[in-house]
Every structure is written in structure tokens, then in C-alpha cells.
Design a protein around this nucleic acid. Structure first.
Length: 514
RNA sequence: GGCCCCGUCAUCUAGUGGUCGAGGAUGCCAGCCUUUCAAGCUGGUCACGCCGGUUCGAAUCCGGUCGGGGCCGCCA
């Protein structure tokens, strides 16, 4: 028994989408969990929609998630090329043989004519599929169309009757009548292969054994199974695919079982419709930028359609590899719930140790201009000092920035609303005395600072809030910050005292000027 | 319109004839804690779409119905 081979075949148009990421993850997990191989194949057959930059972004997002591939662009492998456009000789050879075998035929309708047909069928309530009008054109008719300057597409001749049934890992038996499957295009007028052809040929040629993909492709399966039958039929000794592979000079097909399909439930947005780019934050990159951790993305994505039992929902990636199985994938559409993602992310952040969390925070602080590209040792130490204070106050890495940015700045900008709310009443008195007390308190640590502040409250007959808040605003610029005594202890005494003094001027005295 | 898929709390789900007066998590609400904001703790809110049938017994099986989604491209 040979090892399973799974793949992820994204089209390099646009960036990696959460739906695609989930598909990639499931295939990767199934491969890793079974000792199988994970293959990455870029499906760039549609020249108009492919671009190198989108592909780089795609690979980058996959790497960020930790979904490394055993075979694919960059790393190569025995069944390349892994850029579909470079497999064109194979596709051409297959199409030619299919034509010779009478499995496929040339059709000369133009895209405009077909569009008009579809339109009409729609209006008349008929099925909009291809009519099969050019199925049995004579040599003369074909020549005539060519003489008109028309270029043919190649269509597969699908069975006229009967049906096909297949076992889907997620959905069980699925049966479709052939009368529902119209003659589909294998090669475009310019000769390039379509998804149906290229995807099927390459999966077979690369020996893919298990295909997990979105439910939106469920209806494409009969066509691909039909093609697979044609390609792999070896009653003559050699299969059509073997011959095409040899002609194209590519490696022989691995000796593995035919692929099995697993159709995953689609991921929907708030409107219960298939999640698309128009529904907001759905690009994996965006979550990365917002400060979600890659291992949490994997955990969350895994839960979108899969569950382990009735109570466990947090998994490390190794645990996912260990426990994931396509058999436990559900059948109903899953809604992408950002709140849940945030909660999981927050939980994971709480588990990171100080140095680790500081490491992860640095890029965000640098990105916001809070820290220079190369933070100094002192800045790094200050950051690590803050980590324990902010850890429980953040659910994404980006949320830590406003909590501590002020500590790295020369001057604090006092938040207007905070000033209005807390630098009033007896705040002037509080700040005056606080500056004096803070200038002399010993030692300069959280415990002593808390005691000093409490002492001040007692002296002035004020509660903690009345003392803490003005000082908090003065030092941090905001009425929201990490715990005050611990925060002050991380800073230099001179800085704290100076800020408390300078904030004094912002206090609005009651009845001032009245 | 045709075909295919799906239907348990607001959301993700557990559940494969009795242990379910339906469990967990997120969200939401309340209380506790409290120097802000969080976090934490405790409690609460919320579901088997509907109608028949099978059965001693159904969320679990069958039929129908309603609802949602997907596909029907020279996109993938």
C-alpha cells in the first residue's frame, strides 16, 4: 500500500482566501496525519487571471500558516512541473488523443453565440447547458467553419444516458444523471486547457489519491470522474495518460490508487452566502496584519467544518495533525465567526511566555512606528517588562500597540476625552502632591508605588480611582492603560514626575474664571 | 428553471433509537472581583424548521413539506 498523496491547487488570482486556506489546511492535515505527501500545484492556465505577484502572496500566506509542501514550486519534486502552465505539452497531448479516440470533438460556436443561447434558455426556463449542436459535425462542416475564420474549442462527449455514482468521504454516495452533464470544454479556442482537463490530468499524473475541496466543486466531480476513466483505461496495455505522459517527456504516473473525493462544506458570510472577497476581512493576510497568530488561524479554520468531540476545541497544530480526520468533517455550511476567532486568539496569547510574546509584538510596534527597525536593548527590555501587563488585555497582537506605544514616545499626547473626564475637580491637587510623593518614594517598585499612591489618597480623603486616574492620564495620556503601579515602576522616575508636573497645566479648575 | 447538497441555541458544534427534562464553546445578560481597561470566577439567556409515519420509545430511521445554499462559463 502506497502512501497517500494530497494536494492544494490554487489559482494565483487574488490572495489566499480563508476558504482556500481551510481547504489547504485540511489537505495538509490529512497528508501529515497519514504519512502522506502534500503537493502544491499552481493552476495558472488562465493567462488573463494569473500574475506572479499574486502567486508570491499565495505562497507567502501558506508558509505563514505553516502549511509547508513536500512537492511544489520552489522545492520541486519527482512529478513536476508544479506550475500548471508548464505542463501544457501534457495537456495538449491528452486533448489530441481524446479527439483521436472520439471521446472529444471540436465545436465552433463563438463565446457570444453561446452566451446568447444561455440567455435564451434561461428565459425559456430550459437548462442552460451546451446543446451539443456540434457533436457530430462532418469533416466538411468543420472545414467550412474554419474557412469562416472560426476557431474550435474541444468538448468532451458525455454519456447520453445512465448515471454515475461515487462515494464522497464527507457526503457518502452521490449520484448524478448524465442527462444533467452537458458536453464541457476541455480546451479553449486558443488551445489552452480548462480546469476540468488540466486539473484532472494533473491530479492523475501526479498520483493524487485524496482530494478535499469545496462543495462548490461537487457538481464538477462527474465530469472529472468521466475524464479519469478515459485517461486511465488501459485495456490496450497502455493508458491514454501513460502515452501522453511519455510524449510530453514527463515522469510516469505514481503507482497509487485512483483519487477519492471529500467535498467540504462551504464557508459563508453573515448573509449566509458563500464567503467572497466582498464580505470583508477574508484574506488570510488581513488576519495576519491584525495580529492573529498562525497556529490559532489553523485551529479556527480546522473547526470550520470539523470537530473532534463534544468539548475539545483548542488544539495545537501537532494535535490537529494527530486528531484530524476527514471522516469527521460535517456537512453543513459554516459561518466565519470573527468573535470566536478573537477569543481563541486571546486564549493562545495568554499561553505565550514573555520573550515569545515580545518577539511577536515587535513587528507590530515597528510597523506602527513605535519602535525603530532595530530596537535598542533598553527598548526591548521595556517591552518585555510590559508584556505581562498587557497579555491579558489583548486578543490580537495589534491591540497591544495603543496600550504601550506612549511608553516609547518622547512626549505623551493627552487624550482629549481622558483629560475632560479625569483632569478636573481636585485633580490639580492630586497631581501636585503626586509629583512630590513620586519624586521621593523608595524603592521605585510597584509595591511601594501602590502604597505611596494609597497614602496620598488617604491624605487627601480620596478613593483610589480619584488618585489613580489623574496620574494615569498624566503619565500614559489615556484613562485606559495597564495597571498603574506596575506601569510606573517600569518607567524612569524622572519621566514619571515630569509628566505628572506637565499635566498639571491641563487640569480644568472648577469655576475657573467664573 | 434543472440537478446536487444541507437543516440542533444568535454563531461553531456534540449527538448515529432509550444514559437528552439535548452537552461544550463563542456571543449576550447579571453578579463577584476591582486603580482604568481587560482578564478571571459564578450564574443566567438561547436550539432539535414543520407535518405525518415506523417504534414500547426519535434530535437520531422513513416520507412529505418548508427553508437555506451550491452548480449549470472558452473562471477555477
Amino acid at each position: 500500500m502506497t502512501a497517500p498523496r494530497l494536494r492544494f491547487p490554487p489559482a494565483p488570482s487574488g490572495w489566499l482566501h480563508v476558504g482556500g486556506a481551510r481547504t489547504a489546511l485540511y489537505n495538509w492535515l490529512a497528508a501529515r496525519g497519514s504519512g502522506g505527501a502534500f503537493v502544491l500545484r499552481i493552476e495558472d492556465t488562465d493567462a488573463e487571471r494569473s500574475d506572479a505577484e499574486a502567486m508570491r502572496g499565495m505562497l507567502d500566506s501558506l508558509r505563514w500558516l505553516g502549511l509547508h509542501w513536500d512537492e511544489g514550486p520552489d522545492v520541486g519534486g519527482p512529478h513536476g512541473p508544479y506550475l500548471q502552465s508548464e505542463r501544457r505539452p501534457l495537456h495538449d497531448a491528452v486533448v489530441r488523443r481524446l479527439l483521436e479516440a472520439g471521446r472529444a470533438y471540436e465545436a465552433f460556436e463563438t463565446a457570444e453565440e453561446l452566451e446568447a443561447d444561455r440567455q435564451r434558455a434561461q428565459e425559456e426556463g430550459r437548462p442552460p447547458g451546451y446543446s451539443g449542436a456540434h457533436r457530430d459535425l462532418t469533416e466538411e462542416q468543420r472545414a467550412a467553419y474554419r474557412a469562416e475564420g472560426r476557431e474550435a474549442v474541444v468538448r468532451a462527449r458525455t454519456p447520453d444516458e445512465g448515471s454515475i455514482a461515487f462515494e464522497d468521504v464527507v457526503r457518502g454516495t452521490v449520484e448524478v444523471g448524465w442527462d444533467q452533464v452537458s458536453d464541457f470544454v476541455l480546451a479553449r479556442a486558443d488551445g489552452s486547457p480548462t480546469y476540468y482537463l488540466a486539473n484532472t490530468v494533473d491530479d492523475l499524473a501526479q498520483g493524487i489519491t485524496l482530494i478535499a475541496r469545496g462543495e462548490d466543486l461537487l457538481n464538477a466531480t462527474p465530469r472529472q470522474l468521466l475524464l479519469a476513466d478515459w485517461l486511465l483505461d488501459d485495456t490496450g496495455g497502455h493508458s491514454l495518460l501513460d502515452e501522453a505522459l511519455a510524449e510530453a517527456g514527463l515522469a510516469a504516473r505514481p503507482d497509487v490508487a485512483r483519487p477519492t473525493y471529500a467535498h467540504l462544506p462551504i464557508i459563508v458570510g453573515e448573509d449566509r452566502k458563500k464567503l467572497g472577497k466582498r464580505h470583508g476581512s477574508v484574506a488570510v493576510d488581513e488576519f495576519r496584519e491584525q495580529g492573529y497568530l498562525p497556529e490559532v488561524m489553523c485551529n479556527f479554520l480546522a473547526l470550520l467544518g470539523w470537530s473532534y468531540d463534544d468539548r475539545t476545541e483548542r488544539f495545537t497544530v501537532p494535535e490537529l495533525v494527530e486528531r484530524f480526520s476527514l471522516e469527521r468533517v460535517g456537512r453543513n455550511p459554516a459561518l466565519f465567526d470573527t468573535d470566536k476567532l478573537r477569543a481563541l486568539n486571546g486564549d493562545r496569547i495568554k499561553e505565550l511566555d514573555d520573550a515569545e510574546l515580545a518577539d511577536r509584538l515587535v513587528p507590530f510596534l515597528v510597523g506602527q512606528g513605535v519602535l525603530p527597525d532595530e530596537p535598542t536593548d533598553a527598548q526591548r527590555a521595556l517591552l518585555e517588562g510590559f508584556v505581562p501587563l498587557v497579555r491579558e488585555r489583548m486578543q490580537t497582537l495589534a491591540e497591544a500597540v495603543p496600550l504601550i506605544a506612549w511608553a516609547f514616545a518622547e512626549d505623551v499626547a493627552l487624550d482629549e476625552r481622558s483629560v475632560a473626564k479625569h483632569l478636573k475637580g481636585r485633580a490639580g491637587e492630586v497631581l501636585d502632591r503626586a509629583a512630590e510623593v513620586l519624586a521621593t518614594v523608595e524603592p521605585w517598585d510597584a509595591e511601594a508605588l501602590l502604597a505611596a499612591l494609597d497614602g496620598l489618597g488617604e491624605e487627601l480623603g480620596l478613593g483610589r480611582g480619584k488618585v489613580m486616574q489623574p496620574v494615569r492620564v498624566a503619565v500614559t495620556g489615556s484613562h485606559v492603560s495597564p495597571p498603574l503601579p506596575e506601569t510606573l515602576a517600569l518607567l524612569d522616575r524622572e519621566v514619571v514626575v515630569a509628566r505628572v508636573r506637565s499635566a498639571r497645566a491641563h487640569v480644568v479648575e472648577p469655576d475657573a474664571g467664573a
